[in-house]
Write a protein that binds this DNA or RNA. Sequence first.
DNA 1: TAAGATATATCTAAAATTTAGATATGTAAA
DNA 2: TTTACATATCTAAATTTTAGATATATCTTA
Lengths: 295, 295
Amino acid sequence: MMNPRVSLDQWRTLQAVIDYGGYAQAAKQLHRSQSSVSYAVNKLQMQLSLKLLHIQGRKAVLTEAGKVLLQRSRQLISEAYAIEQQAHHLQQGWEAEIRLAVEASYPTQLVMDALRQFEPLGKQTRIRLEEVVLSGAEELLLNGDTDLAISPFIPQGFFGDELLQVHFIAVAHADHALHQLERNLTTHDLNRETHVIISDSGSKGMDAGWISDARRWTVSSPESAHKIISNGLGFGWLPEKEIEQELDNQTLKILPLNEGRHETAILYLVYADPDQAGPATRQLAAILKQVSAEN
Amino acid sequence: MMNPRVSLDQWRTLQAVIDYGGYAQAAKQLHRSQSSVSYAVNKLQMQLSLKLLHIQGRKAVLTEAGKVLLQRSRQLISEAYAIEQQAHHLQQGWEAEIRLAVEASYPTQLVMDALRQFEPLGKQTRIRLEEVVLSGAEELLLNGDTDLAISPFIPQGFFGDELLQVHFIAVAHADHALHQLERNLTTHDLNRETHVIISDSGSKGMDAGWISDARRWTVSSPESAHKIISNGLGFGWLPEKEIEQELDNQTLKILPLNEGRHETAILYLVYADPDQAGPATRQLAAILKQVSAEN
DNA sequence: TAAGATATATCTAAAATTTAGATATGTAAA
DNA sequence: TTTACATATCTAAATTTTAGATATATCTTA
């Protein structure tokens, strides 16, 4: 097995000799005697059977081998230190990992903004991000497979805060048949065309839209739905924010429905367990609320 | 400054407890007493103010924090060990880095084959690969900026071995004007067409081909030349190996020249200094000769 | 070129850390 | 309940590391 014989302290001492410009200076900085520093470095060189420093005049200078190994040892030391930092964060209750489930209609940009803000505060906390659709978040919450979820509803027995309202608009490509009728559309009109709907990533199979549609395409992400509709292959409800530009330049047009032209989905931030949530989870939750509110 | 307080030995001991299934077993494997192992792990937990193990029944089991930190500490230990390995290789004279300059007309596949063979023998030796053209290798050799070079000639005062002969063939795309004449070509014919030549990556500016060409495109790599010629935008001499397929399927055709239809470039493996070359450099040189000979 | 200042090397005893061995305590299996 | 197994703790011994004193070497400067 791997059994390092050189101690971190020895590497650290070597670094100090170089960084502070000599054995004596290193000794002072490390609050140790010069002979102690000398001992540590000599032992290191002895163990490696390799000279890392040579005395040039009366100054210690790195050999070629010394340069190479010093550089690697710096990484080693900082990794060792980072582990201890993480231990400290864990000791204070910081989680090593947060599992976050995000409903796909929640704007990706906001997730990214939140993670960027969280990162420096996150103290070594990894984020495991899962994108889910509709009841997908609920399923993860019920199974205890996520710590936080952004979901369009709050499952029974859970707590959550409103994060964001997403406005869905019924649209089709400007060239789509539904836009050629030039009158308000009826259910009958819609039933003759391909309806693009987003399927559920959970296993419960709750579908949005009219389940009764004869002709429909089911896709697993809003991006796919968007792409299909933008290509004129069907109609459907898409998040307002995502299609602003296409509405502006008239590639997509709002369907002239009598009702249901707009649908609003409210996205909630749901905790797996608000009491057991650690400080990192709370921190991330706060940031998510903030970026959502700013939006 | 970063000053780890936990020693490698402590992390190593924690690992042993887990890997060998208990304090007693770890002690046996580490040739230490059970109380010594107990002491090391306790000190570790004390220093981190964090429980890493808890006793379940009469067995030591990792806590959640313990799992996270153990995993990271494994990396730490193996990095520490790797540094010592590299020290050993350096001690034996293995170079930390080999700088290799390769003439672009040397087949990339052979470089890759050689590096793949070298890697396990290379003992932590990094390779710095530079692709050069014509006098580029010479310049690096003269400036001491490379250890090994694959070059089309051996600069004054250097030593080298023949590696490979590269056959260049004068070609143009089948649809190219030069192929429509259906007779042997004259210098005059060539001068009316675009000649694609490879420029020099050195600063001396030795160009291959006829410097006198009125119409010529100068490119900095054989790949670019190949691409241009394959697109019918000019003619030029390309390495036989690289265009075998295109000659077979007749996209490229050999120019019916009276002379100079073929040109042979000999590539040499040149040492910056054969006496000072370390074992890794010699090893790599041997592999390069071998893969070149097999070709 | 000699003296003083600066820097590393080495020696020894003291201090600190780590280890082993003995024993205590607690759990699981027979 | 007894036995076997596993970790915890205590103390003294062994080992490692440290400090302080001093030696040796180099650079600076007069």
